[in-house]
């Protein structure tokens, strides 16, 4: 999985030396080589994902991978906050859930057009992110975490109470797969491809974002807010931008999830969903884009495998989480990079 080298481009600590190399000279050829190997490994992964439904006819597995891609989008969006901007949000399910409900309401009542449902879900998530983010980022640390949790629990309560809109505890059933032009994405394989398109688009957009001047501003805020202010950055606006962008992509994941599941319930806005996606980010490796996707894959695959054997899967996931927090703080990506470093050192000797 050489795509993990992608960290060299996405991880903040490494971005700048690469950039400096380009400006200072000397490291130019090396950075071009690493860029080429990133491209090659990225295309390899993409090709694998493209042929996957043909090679693996199992509907069950196609669904699992579809879910991994959806939660990969969700986890990447949260990592923009946690890993890049240093804002530990514990309420990211709010945006996922609001978009899921909105897309489901539009799809069941008005139109199952892909663009209409998706746009409605994403816009709803963005509209929620502006005021909640605007308030939450006035505080920081544990207070920020508690405020985001509180906002998401308000959304959860609304999902319970506004029965006329949300179906209350029954949720909204019968959400159809979206249609676009002649396509209806109703088979597992076609829906998989639809999700894959959004996944790849999200990955590329966020990758561009984190290497852009704005992305570097996010990283600057994470590293040192006070110095960012001293050199003229409006830290509040930068945090809000990060919060809203994260909310929009979280909403995209939520809308896709409502089609995927065909059913939306208050459970999808519950705080445990925020907890799960945070675990995905941390297990995979915060501050990278590949990490959260691997974290989502790890989480969902373990969940699927273990829960078919025993109902103790939360215990097992909890132990895995403790392991990563205590022994592998940089997550799966960090473990991989450490292993590569060890192997390189051994090869040199």
């Amino acid at each position: 999985m050489a795509i993990l080298r992608d960290r060299e481009l996405t991880d903040s600590a490494a971005v700048a030396p690469a950039a400096a190399g380009a400006a200072v000279g000397g490291a130019q050829t090396q950075s071009r080589a690493s860029r080429r190997s990133t491209l090659v490994s990225g295309l390899t992964v993409l090709a694998t994902l493209l042929v996957f439904p043909f090679v693996v006819p199992s509907v069950y597995l196609q669904n699992v991978i579809t879910e991994v891609l959806i939660f990969g989008i969700f986890a990447m969006s949260l990592d923009l906050l946690i890993g890049y901007t240093g804002l530990v949000s514990f309420g990211h399910a709010a945006f996922f859930g609001v978009a899921a409900y909105t897309a489901a309401i539009v799809a069941t009542r008005y139109s199952d057009n892909l663009l209409a449902t998706l746009a409605a879900g994403v816009v709803a998530a963005g509209l929620l992110a502006v005021p909640t983010g605007g308030l939450a980022i006035r505080s920081s640390g544990i207070y920020f975490l508690m405020l985001t949790l509180a906002f998401s629990q308000i959304v959860y309560a609304a999902a319970w109470k506004w029965t006329w809109l949300t179906g209350g505890s029954n949720g909204l059933a019968g959400v159809p797969r979206p249609k676009f032009g002649g396509f209806d994405f109703s088979s597992p394989a076609t829906f998989y491809y639809l999700v894959l398109v959004f996944f790849v688009a999200t990955f590329l957009a966020l990758r561009r974002l984190v290497s852009s001047p704005l992305g570097h501003s996010f990283i600057g805020v994470r590293e040192n807010e006070s110095r960012m202010q001293a050199i003229g950055y409006d830290v509040w606006r930068i945090k809000l931008a990060s919060f809203v962008i994260a909310g929009l992509f979280g909403g995209l994941a939520g809308a896709l999830f409502s089609y995927y599941n065909g059913f939306v319930s208050p459970h999808d806005v519950y705080w445990s969903v925020s907890g799960h996606v945070m675990i995905m980010v941390i297990i995979g490796g915060a501050g990278t884009l590949v990490g959260p996707v691997l974290g989502a894959a790890f989480f969902l695959i373990v969940q699927n495998v273990v829960s078919s054997q025993t109902d103790r899967w939360p215990l097992i996931m909890g132990l895995a989480f403790i392991f990563f927090v205590l022994a592998a703080r940089r997550g799966i990506v960090g473990m991989y990079l450490d292993a590569v470093a060890v192997a390189r050192a051994a090869a040199r000797r």
Partner: peptide, 11 residues
């Protein structure tokens, strides 16, 4: 010193 500790000098 009030710098971006984890970032490069260039950054």
């Amino acid at each position: 010193n009030n710098l971006f500790l984890g970032l490069s000098v260039f950054e």
